[in-house]
Design a protein around this nucleic acid. Structure first.
Lengths: 248, 248
DNA sequence: CATGCTCAAACTGCATGCAATCGGAATGCC
DNA sequence: GGCATTCCGATTGCATGCAGTTTGAGCATG
């Protein structure tokens, strides 16, 4: 009757997990091509599976799928980046609102342990710090035990990693370990308003550190740079590049 | 050079669209089985494509995919339903915050026209009213031109349709056309705080109309009813049924 | 009649094959 | 030399085939 632990975790899911991780650790940078063949071969699976995995990742906004074209790691626009952080703020405020004063000692301990790990990674490569910081937020979300919240926060957190990879320069994010500690303290004390404010300002700080320059697209893709100039007649005072209307 | 209008909208996408629509119109009720073969045959495609479509829908939370089992239309739990509406409130507050006072006459007109359509559907079947009401919210989201907001609001709105299908009894939702009108007025006038409040209370009202009875799982599935009793030893005072940890 | 067992049909998981499309280099033309 | 054209390899879109798993109908048994 014991439900055969880890029955068979779905090959596509494994590929997803691996790619997700590679993307948030910036081993795969925005714009990197992801051919189905190559993925399939690398993971000992067929194209069919790789394709399925890419579909999932595309649904999460981590890769871009263009018909008859090689899939690529997504390259969020600056405007999308701002919007993403806005949404993330609201979602994570929801998380801490639900969690404040509700966590038991074990959970608090787990959070503190995780932040200790972040502290320990201060010297190491940036990408590890970013991954750990992201995992802290996901860990928080998981403690709500709300599948939808977990899913959305995870998704948007991963996307924020991608945004950091796209826009922030190499050593701009010193990861705010102390801010995470303050969050835990406020959560433990059950100060709802305070913890919501802390979260808000924490994420705002992260966003500000990352999205310093509105018009600094890391010189990666000429199309991005030219996008604002591609409009027939920019009537409005070149404020924001007017994003694409719909996604799918 | 003209980019060949509607080049070829991807068979899988067509199936997705069709299923999505069928689900929100409650032609496909929660729990309905969705065999790959049947879908493929129905849409003149192979299982591979149907499978891909189901994967996308699963990523949106509209269908549940269990390994080696027939996919089914998702049946949200009551707790998930509450959480979903909580998230939706925050997202849509974000929408109207961005939109208040920013809409041009044409957009306002389009909104009013849509609400007129809702009004006209008052006599018709419930499912049409629900679909139109949902499309109103999605229309609002689209006016932000923020791909991420659009995606999230659409997704969560569809899920709310599913929730309505699962929990609300046949004629509980009289769709609040007047509330939609009030929203438009406040948007036009640019009263940010007012429109955010209106949206908040509007969605709260929808949720309350739908989620009246916490323990009324529509007698559909015995497993749902028994879920809270299945725990080995419910130490905590049977508060909430402790939802599954993760989704995929 | 209720309960457990067996087995075939149904269905999914995955790989492979073929046609269509794309990208880019070689080619031809001015 | 600059520029359009053609063509071939690379790559995707999709269908089909086979193996493994689940379902549940029928049969046997207490």
């Amino acid at each position: 009757m014991a439900p055969t632990r880890t029955s068979k975790p779905d090959k596509a899911a494994i590929i997803c997990q691996a790619l997700r991780r590679a993307i948030i650790e910036q081993a795969l940078k925005p714009g990197t091509k992801l051919p189905e063949d190559a993925l399939g071969e690398r993971f000992g699976a067929s194209r069919t599976i790789a394709r399925h995995a890419l579909g999932q990742l595309a649904a999460e906004g981590l890769v871009e799928l263009r018909r008859n074209r090689i899939a690529v790691v997504a390259t969020p626009s600056w405007q999308e980046a701002r919007d993403t952080f806005d949404i993330r703020m609201e979602l994570e405020r929801l998380v801490v609102r639900q969690l404040a004063g509700q966590l038991d000692a074990g959970q608090i301990a787990r959070l503190r342990a995780h932040v200790d790990a972040e502290e320990g990674a201060r010297g190491g490569p940036d990408t590890v710090s970013i991954r750990l910081a992201t995992e802290f937020h996901i860990l928080l979300a998981e403690m709500t035990e709300s599948p939808i919240l977990i899913r959305y926060v995870s998704e948007i957190s991963y996307r924020c990693c991608l945004i950091l990879a796209t826009f922030s320069r190499p050593h701009s994010s010193d990861c705010a370990v102390s801010e995470h500690r303050a969050l835990i303290d406020a959560l433990e004390a059950g100060r709802v308003d305070e913890v919501m404010n802390l979260m808000h300002h924490h994420l705002e700080a992260v966003a500000d550190r990352a999205l310093v320059a509105p018009a600094k697209p890391r010189g990666r893709d000429i199309m991005d740079i030219l996008a604002p100039y591609a409009e027939p007649a920019p009537v409005a005072p070149a404020g924001q590049p007017r994003v694409r209307a719909i996604m799918r």
